[in-house]
Write a protein that binds this DNA or RNA. Sequence first.
DNA 1: TGACAAAGTTAGGGGTTCCTAACTATCATG
DNA 2: CATGATAGTTAGGAACCCCTAACTTTGTCA
Lengths: 159, 159
Amino acid sequence: MKTESGQELSASLEDYLEAIFNLADESEGARSKDIAEALSVARSSVTGALQALREKGLANYRPYGCITLTESGQARAAEVVRKHNILKSFFVNVLGVDADVAQQAACKAEHALGPEIISRLLSFIKYVTESHRNGRDVAEEFRQFHESRSGRKARKIEP
Amino acid sequence: MKTESGQELSASLEDYLEAIFNLADESEGARSKDIAEALSVARSSVTGALQALREKGLANYRPYGCITLTESGQARAAEVVRKHNILKSFFVNVLGVDADVAQQAACKAEHALGPEIISRLLSFIKYVTESHRNGRDVAEEFRQFHESRSGRKARKIEP
DNA sequence: TGACAAAGTTAGGGGTTCCTAACTATCATG
DNA sequence: CATGATAGTTAGGAACCCCTAACTTTGTCA
């Protein structure tokens, strides 16, 4: 039983899918205006994207109607969101990056990484988490390593 | 003294820059045909890209002439290549991904990640390398963790 | 209910990136 | 040096994705 449903999807359409998924989570059915806002895009661009998503069988959409995802649309969106969360978690919890920076980077990188790498990344996060429980906190150890390295750099400037 | 030189560059143009850089490394001056081959693109697309790069002051190019990068072109290309190598190294040496998969993923992701994350990723690779020298090999430990996890999954299927 | 504001759509246009087909330049070789 | 093969260019067009401006629909409230 495969989760994925068919064709290639552009990064842009994946973004729309993700936004609809997240918005529909809170209320039921997303509003065009909120999608536009979430993606920083004109409302008319949303209309276009919705037509494309409908044609691919991913969104239930008719003019002036409320916007939901089809089953396969939800599956695709869930995959994207999953990638996003794994990436963000890696950036924040392992690399120690700011939440905002991580959020933005995850948004862009989620379209670029295939299942193999995502799966290993997830595994790696779990590994780091376990290391924490086992008293050999890899994330913490790295953070100190990183700080001491940046520190060393800084010291070079003022001797 | 900053390395970067100016404007935003599309992912596509970054790819061309990288290809020219790599090709010019081996011989001197890249050939249009080889760029096309490296990027799996029609020769005419290369011509267009070269015009764009020339307009941005990144490539020395005139019709039928040999192709080199300007100084700022080289600087930009070097940045891209650096990102690429850091990502690939992370995928291969930390996550344990196949070289080919890593290569492809690095190619796509290099356009999506900013300096903050790249710098931390580099630092993390160094941390893992040191851990190897210190007898606490994080990469190796993760590899075993990952294997045991995939193993556990597989066992579920045939009980 | 009628009228106004907000939400959504359509029309038209621009930029990017790529393609194929046909043309031109370059180069090696007989 | 002629000529054919290879490399490179131009022309024209398609697919995306986004925009603004103008129009239509919807919903609210006096």
